[in-house]
């Protein structure tokens, strides 16, 4: 029983990080139908920027985090302007291929500036142990869950009630019609990419705080594909629930089955199964076809 509780907590914390990365993923897909393969690299950039400000420059963590988020947002805007705007009107698949290239580019930039060795991150989120019933967890992991939940609520409200949020969904539905009602599609894309970069950066800071900074962090992006496929590529609650399910499955598979190596692949097994039986995910939007 204790082991179960412990594994559950571990699963939920890794799920929280997945959820943050997945939120950005969903956001970009929702507004532009583009699958951003560079989402994991956005996280990497966020982690290294935070490391740069906190570890190398030694500024106070609050300022460092704010600077990181501002730079992440700026990166989103720049990528939209330089990489995506010239591709407007091209087939979606070309844009998706470009994001794969972008992923390699970002990773190479990080490697070029900071090298490929892991660096110790000056953790600022408290790491003291918290006892919940019989399980032990460090406080920074609990914070990860809280932050993910806060972002979920903000995003849900944003898409339902905010003018720009509704406009983002409109752009996702029909770009030309969105233009015809006066929505600037380019502005919406810039918004989507910078918000996605911000959430990924937040996830990056959390992961860096829990572990360390290393180029391997972008691997989180790989774990997020099963999450968004499971939850539905365009569903915000889906991203969160999918993240929790994948996080828990990985934890249980690691703790209960054999030597734990199943944890590495369990999420992809889920991915294959879900693609076979429910390709739009648990909460994804079905294609509406009037007959």
């Amino acid at each position: 029983m204790d082991k179960f509780l412990q594994l559950t907590l571990t699963g939920l914390t890794s799920g929280a990080v997945y959820a943050l990365v997945a939120l950005g993923f969903v956001l970009i897909y929702k507004s532009s139908d583009v699958i951003n393969f560079a989402q994991g690299e956005f996280l990497l950039i966020g982690a290294y920027l935070a490391y740069f400000f906190l570890g190398q420059l030694g500024v106070h963590w609050s300022i460092g985090v704010i600077l990181t988020l501002i730079l992440a947002a700026a990166m989103g805007v720049v990528i939209e302007r330089l990489v995506l705007r010239p591709l407007i009107g091209e087939p979606i698949i070309s844009v998706i291929m470009v994001t794969i290239g972008l992923a390699s580019l970002l990773k190479a930039i990080v490697g070029g500036i900071w090298g490929t060795n892991p660096q110790i991150f000056p953790a600022f989120i408290p790491k003291q142990e918290v006892h919940i019933v019989n399980a032990v967890v460090t406080a920074d992991k609990l914070w990860a869950i809280v932050i993910a939940l806060i972002f979920l609520v903000i995003f849900t409200l944003f898409f339902r009630y905010n003018k720009e949020g509704v406009a983002m969904r409109a752009v996702a539905d029909d770009q030309q019609a969105a233009l015809s009602v006066g929505i600037s599609v380019q502005k919406i894309f810039a918004w989507a990419w910078s918000i996605a970069a911000i959430t990924a950066a937040v996830a990056g800071i959390i992961v860096a705080n829990v572990l360390e900074v290393s180029p391997n962090l972008s691997g989180v992006g790989l774990h997020v594909f099963p999450v968004v496929i499971l939850g539905g590529l365009d569903s915000i609650p889906g991203a969160l629930i999918g993240a929790a399910i994948i996080g828990l499955l990985e934890a249980y598979a690691g703790g209960y089955v054999g030597d734990g190596s199943l944890a590495q692949v369990i999420s992809y097994i889920v991915l294959v199964i879900i693609l076979m039986i429910r390709p739009y995910g648990l909460f994804g939007k079905e294609i509406i076809e009037r007959v």
Partner: peptide, 14 residues
Amino acid sequence: RVFEHLTVEENLKT
């Protein structure tokens, strides 16, 4: 060309 996944009222708001 209505926005298919938005409600009627949200369409009007756009």
